[in-house]
Design a protein around this nucleic acid. Structure first.
Lengths: 233, 233
DNA sequence: CGTATACTTGAGCTTCCTCAACGACGGTGG
DNA sequence: CCACCGTCGTTGAGGAAGCTCAAGTATACG
């Protein structure tokens, strides 16, 4: 059995700076795995025995509170690493990753991380950058939740989704995976009712066009303005 | 001029695993700097030309929004690293660090990080763990702000402060640096008024005892229960 | 002793959540 | 192909948590 095609991870930040030989080595340790829609890649609290790069599809990363409430931490798009708990010295995954569309990921066993690291020290820097930008995003979200009202937070969430998983369609940009009002609510710390009202209002203003598990942004500029601009009506 | 006393960083996680010789090397590149109360160690947006370990005192790390609102990201206590932006590949500090008490820090020039890394690769893992746990904390805070009411968030903030900077006094544990209602509000995403009301109410219940820039927790157990327990009164 | 900064407390109001009911879409099986 | 049913979405009414506005009071520092 040959090694995987290097073009699979073409241009993915952590692997971009590797020599072809090193890349081959890295890929030789990985296994591609399919995750049909609805299946979990790993579960919060489970032993962190692998880390991943998403090749195809979309994942939702959720955190469950002791009281049973869910919060969506982020969505994973192709090209992104996820499940990188070993690298941060954690034995267990701090959240659950679920495929929201049929997905394929490359999986590395956690215990090959030391070998990878000695062979390609540059990987460490790449991971550091990744974790660093996750930290920035998390801090940004804390600031947002501390200072902005719900409508603006929802606008911001949609902007991020469009940037990350936007797919141009007829008249607008569509979020490229099924997403419910409840999902958006769990991203923004509100309720599905409030999200529904906001989307309804935006729909009347021609800002978005949405339906069952489907959101199409028709006017990205105005949405962006809503997210960024001052409380100015 | 000799090198710094290794006992300065005794038991500080990122340096714990270094050989005495390596530790000497690391310390030879650092300079101790004093930051009187009220002065900034670095400012948000400024070039990240140094990284630090706090030796003495306490810092507040704040993020400023475009609209001019402040959010307190964390407090730094002795032994903790801070300003580690180079390590995550950032050119500028994402937040401002201000001394809330007279403080002393060890400062390394950012450009000596590569040299440090080649000499002591183990440092990378230590930093990764640090950044990883910051990420966990940030995510925890997002979850908290999404799901818990203000009183509980304030309780949680106080618990963390007690753990991190609690100093036993006569009858209780005191937060070991000046902290205002406004500061607590900026940690929890609320207003100084609400914090004031909550502390007043807790004071009447004998839970805390507080005054101008001063908070003493008299009953840590009950405070902890307030922070962790279900909405059960 | 005066002034600046921090804290307290009340009253009213806004935002958003909760509760409730209904409507619509889409997949499944007859 | 149609009817059914589960899931998702919409919308209204009421209420509560916490913010805003507004005084007024204490504490430290010069």
């Amino acid at each position: 059995m040959g090694t995987l095609d290097p073009s699979l991870v073409d241009g993915m930040p952590p692997f971009a700076d590797l020599t072809p030989a090193d890349l081959d080595f890295v890929l030789s340790l990985a296994k591609p795995v399919r995750y049909p829609k609805g299946t979990a890649v790993f579960a919060q609290g489970g032993t962190a025995d692998s880390f991943f790069v998403l090749l195809h599809g979309h994942l939702q990363v959720v955190k469950l509170t002791p009281e049973g409430r869910q919060v969506v931490l982020r969505y994973v798009s192709p090209g992104e690493m996820f499940g990188i708990a070993v690298q941060t010295g954690r034995a267990a995954y701090p959240a659950t990753a679920v495929a929201v569309a049929d997905s394929i990921a490359l999986a590395w066993p956690s215990d090959c991380w030391p070998a990878l690291l000695t062979r390609c020290p540059a990987l460490a820097a790449g991971i550091m950058r990744t974790v660093g930008s996750r930290l920035d995003e998390a801090h940004l979200r804390v600031v947002e939740m501390s200072t902005q009202e719900v409508e603006r937070r929802v606008a911001h969430a949609l902007v991020r989704l469009v940037r990350q998983a936007g797919r141009p369609v007829g008249e607008g940009i569509r979020i490229d995976f099924p997403i419910t009002r409840e999902d958006v609510a769990q991203m923004t710390g509100t309720t599905l009712h409030t999200v529904s009202r906001i989307l309804s209002s935006w729909e009347q203003q021609g800002l978005v066009e949405s339906g069952r598990q489907r959101i199409v942004v028709r006017d990205p500029d105005r949405l962006f303005a809503l997210a960024e601009r001052d409380g100015a009506r």
